[in-house]
């Protein structure tokens, strides 16, 4: 299953490292990263592949959620399908 991870929050040192390490621990493969900083606000979208992971979707979701709380960011994961449904014909 492919999913989009969205990370938003105040820009600080080590956001990408922190999120990528967490994904690596969860055995989730990162396929693409898109990242910008606007007026000190950090926005990152990642396309990830969960088929490499032995962890359940709910565990991945909860772990990212907890990591977000720890780093003072909002991290969420949603299946890619919802975005494709809305923006691709």
């Amino acid at each position: 299953m492919k999913a989009i991870v969205t990370v938003t929050g105040k820009d600080t040192v080590g956001i990408i490292a922190g999120v990528c390490t967490e994904l690596a621990n969860l055995e989730v493969n990162i396929l693409d990263i898109n990242q910008t900083v606007m007026d000190g606000f950090f926005v990152m979208n990642m396309l990830v592949d969960l088929s490499t992971s032995t962890k359940s979707y709910d565990l991945v979701r909860d772990s990212l959620d907890a990591k977000g709380v720890q780093m003072g960011l909002t991290i969420r994961i949603q299946r890619e399908d919802i975005f494709n449904a809305m923006h691709r014909i």
Binding site: T6, D32, N34, M86
Partner: peptide, 12 residues
Amino acid sequence: MLRQNEIMQTLD
């Protein structure tokens, strides 16, 4: 890949 503004539009 989906464009960032598309993803953010859905989230918004």
